[in-house]
Amino acid sequence: MRYHNITKEDMLNGDGLRVVLWVAGCSHGCKGCQNPITWDPKGGLEFDEAAKEEIYEQMEKSYVAGITFSGGDPLYQGNRLEITDFVKELKEKYPKKTIWLYTGYLWEEIQDLEILPYLDVVVDGKFILEQKDVSLKWKGSANQRVIDVKKSLEAGSVVLHD
């Protein structure tokens, strides 16, 4: 897996102060994407132990609410195994911190993935330029959904995060 950046003390990509891992690789190609540089799965840097340590260092801080995975698409086929393993590791190491994940896939396409029970919130759906709305909280276009993963898995259908 490759990544482009690790953002520290981010307040735009999830609830509270967060660390954000911007992964490389996306097959959606959304018109108007704010990060087209992240589409190439061979772009960016190798996600190595030094990158993990940088994230752990941030997650140790009491005021950091959790981590958000964005990109690119963390659920791009080439990322799924490593992202799943890393998310499991983070949930075990920091059980009180929240894990958010942005993906262009719909909940209905990913709801059975192994990673889901380890996530707290998923923002799903492709970015649609014609539905762009800068006033929306935690999402870029009106079609996207901010989903409470635990409640959705329990209900067997999408429950939105409040």
Rank of each mutant, 00 (worst) to 15 (best):
G29L: 08
K31L: 09
G32L: 08
C33I: 06
Q34K: 10
Q34V: 14
Q34S: 15
I37M: 08
I37T: 09
T38S: 12
D40G: 03
P41C: 08
P41A: 10
P41I: 10
P41E: 09
K42F: 10
G43E: 09
G43H: 10
E46C: 13
E46I: 15
D48C: 14
E49Q: 14
A51H: 09
A51R: 04
E53K: 15
E54G: 12
I55N: 03
Y56K: 12
E57Y: 05
Q58R: 12
E60T: 06
E60H: 13
E60F: 11
K61A: 15
Y63S: 03
V64Y: 00
A65Q: 13
A65G: 05
A65S: 12
I67H: 00
F69Q: 00
S70G: 06
G71T: 03
G72Y: 07
G72F: 04
G72V: 06
D73T: 05
L75H: 01
Y76S: 02
Q77F: 13
G78S: 14
N79C: 07
I83G: 01
T84I: 04
D85R: 14
F86Y: 04
V87R: 01
V87Y: 01
V87C: 04
L90C: 08
K91L: 03
P95Y: 06
T98E: 11
I99K: 00
I99L: 05
I99M: 03
W100E: 04
W100P: 00
L101N: 00
T103Y: 02
T103D: 02
T103P: 01
Y105H: 12
E109D: 14
